[in-house]
């Protein structure tokens, strides 16, 4: 990390009519960092990404990318940025390879430079065999990889990825993580949104968790787990007896579905207690807490519309 701030937002607000999609968020992304946005559906992640991409004007606040204001220098910013949108917008009128060369033209990259670059990227994303097919004939995962290849055509130093691995099989997801990590190690900056906690934990140096347009917490994934949840989670089948028993021993717990969940530093003790004193006969599991536990703890379990 060189300490250069690539993206800087201060009190950033985005409104659609009466709906406040982004509600005064502030954050900084440093050069060479992988920075993740997590949050339930409708949290305002895509709205934030689109403002950074200079395709959606902010309602108020400040937003600078590469030190430039997004509304005063969109051209300069977009020239150095690669974008993977949440919704696919690959051009179906061209073959895979032609589409990449076509896209390069928007960046003033001449064909004789774009063609080898396209081949290189197709190899990078393991799509060489599909270079002459049309987009329609690609599977969903291949399309996602192609969009990623497209986002790299202009050698961007900042990548904005809105749910890059949604709908991918584990192989493709691992391939993309590996490629992303490689790009970050070369000094590029990545901003991504994701619903996969594992992805955030593996890939991101820092994350924020957003909900209803606000940033709830920010930090390194492992530190967030430490700060917001005890080290272990004990889960057991729930029953009125068990809940009574836990209350009696003054142990805090959550219930959802047919499980009780107990955050604890001492899983052995809690397990022993459940089995011996609460005379549990169902299943008891103890595991280290994860980012997902933190996420659910902070954003609740209600389903978002």
């Amino acid at each position: 990390m060189t300490g250069n701030t690539v993206v800087e937002a201060k009190n950033l607000v985005k409104r659609f009519g009466n709906l406040q999609a982004v509600n005064g968020i502030s954050f900084q992304v440093q050069e060479g960092e992988a920075f993740g946005f997590l949050g339930p559906n409708g949290a305002g992640k895509t709205s934030t990404m689109r403002m950074i991409q200079c395709v959606s004007p902010k309602t108020s606040g400040e937003l600078r990318v590469f030190g430039m204001d997004t509304e005063e220098h969109p051209r300069e910013i977009k020239l150095r940025m690669g974008v993977v949108p949440q919704e696919s917008n690959l051009d179906p009128d061209f073959t895979v390879r032609e589409g990449l060369i076509q896209f390069a033209r928007y960046f003033d990259i001449p064909r004789h430079e774009a063609a080898p670059r396209a081949d290189e990227l197709l190899a990078f994303m393991a799509l060489e065999e599909k270079k002459n097919s049309t987009v329609e004939k690609l599977s969903g995962g291949m399309r996602r990889r192609l969009i990623l290849a497209r986002a790299l055509i202009n050698h961007p130093t900042l990548l904005i990825l809105d749910e890059p691995t949604t709908g991918l099989d584990p192989q493709a997801r691992h391939l993309i993580w590996e490629k992303m990590r490689g790009l970050v190690d070369e000094g590029n900056t990545i901003l991504l949104t994701t619903h996969y906690m594992e992805e955030a934990a593996r890939l991101c140096d820092r994350i924020v968790i957003m909900d209803t347009g606000k940033i709830l917490v920010e930090g390194r994934p492992d530190e967030l787990v430490k700060a917001h949840a005890s080290e272990y989670m004990v889960e057991a089948d729930t029953s009125p007896d068990v809940m009574q028993c836990l209350k009696r021993h003054q142990i805090a717990f959550d219930t959802y579905g047919d499980k009780v969940q107990i955050f604890t530093r001492d899983p052995k003790e809690v397990t022993r207690l459940l089995l011996d004193e609460c005379s549990m006969d169902g299943e008891v599991t103890a595991r280290p807490t994860t980012l997902e536990d933190v996420f659910l703890k902070l954003t609740g379990r209600t389903l978002r519309e």
């Binding site: 395709v55 949108p85 202009n154």
Partner: peptide, 14 residues
């Protein structure tokens, strides 16, 4: 349907 314009405005095109 094709979202071609959306893709274009994410590049230096206005």
């Amino acid at each position: 349907y094709q979202k071609t314009f959306d893709a274009m405005i994410a590049t230096p095109l206005s």
